[in-house]
């Protein structure tokens, strides 16, 4: 029966009316409206209904992304810790990897290990060093395509890596679910790069970012984000 509950129940409500459990207003003069309100209150009391408050209640562990605009977009002000982030990229060279550089620099400087699994090109050490990444903490893993998922899962699950970056040209929901669970188990940041064509398929990831171009200008767009409340969904990648 709760499929029939109108979707407007999940729309933001203002703080005054969201003081749940809401009691019927005592000075209601119209009996019909008072009855409706009581019925609504009863309905809303059902545990199956979740009403979003004006402020996000859940506090999630995050890792600052190092970009103020992006931190403002993401709930908790950064990359969700122990979760999978998908970056769906239209082309190489839009600044999709540079987006992660401040995070990776912060992690490696805090002596946490970062693993790159099956990168498509050479991750260029001079550029990484210039971005402040401690190369001693960086490990690259060359895995054949049928071992990529396994390797990423092992690294995520182990909990001894700060972040795992994986490039997955082909994957499916089931594999991503495994990776998501592994990231939760190990409390590791997992960044998965996928082609933009995967944006239409369902995904269990906590965060999905679309990185494409609008009129030749690279744009970042939040496709999915757990725990987000309203606000902007996109930003420009280049200042």
């Amino acid at each position: 029966m709760f499929n029939a509950v109108p979707a407007t129940c999940f729309e933001p409500v203002d703080a005054a009316s969201a003081s749940w459990p809401a009691a019927p207003t005592p000075n209601a003069t119209n009996p019909a409206s008072a009855r409706d309100e009581a019925a609504l209150t009863d309905l809303l009391r059902h545990p199956g209904i979740w009403r979003r408050r004006s402020a996000p209640a859940a506090t999630i562990a995050t890792q600052p992304s190092g970009h103020a605009a992006l931190d403002a977009l993401l709930p908790g002000g950064g990359w969700p810790q122990g979760a999978l982030c998908e970056l769906l990229v239209e082309h190489d060279g839009l600044g999709e990897c540079s987006l992660l550089l401040p995070t990776l620099a912060a992690l490696t400087q805090a002596r946490r290990r970062v693993v790159l699994v099956a990168p498509p090109w050479i991750a260029y050490a001079p550029a990484l060093a210039a971005a402040g990444i401690d190369l001693r903490q960086l490990v690259q893993l060359d895995a054949s395509s049928n071992n990529t998922h396994w390797s990423i899962e092992q690294c995520l699950r182990s909990g001894c890596c700060g972040a795992v970056l994986g490039w997955l040209p082909r994957t499916d929901y089931r594999e991503l679910r495994r990776l998501q669970l592994a990231a939760e188990t190990g409390g590791t940041l997992g960044f998965m790069f996928r082609p933009l064509a995967a944006a239409d398929s369902a995904s269990p990831s906590t965060l999905r970012l679309r990185i494409g171009t609008v009129q030749g200008e690279p744009q970042l767009e939040l496709l999915k984000c757990r725990g987000r409340v309203g606000g902007m969904v996109g930003m420009r990648l280049r200042a």
């Binding site: 991750a123 001693r136 060359d142 071992n147 909990g159």
Partner: peptide
């Protein structure tokens, strides 16, 4: 929270992927 330490993980990866699969980067 680490359930597996890095040497053990590195061994496991090397055992399956080959000795040369794991490497670091340097300038």
């Amino acid at each position: 929270r680490s359930t597996l330490d890095w040497p053990a993980l590195a061994e496991r990866l090397r055992a399956r992927l080959g000795d040369d699969a794991l490497h670091g980067l340097a300038c």
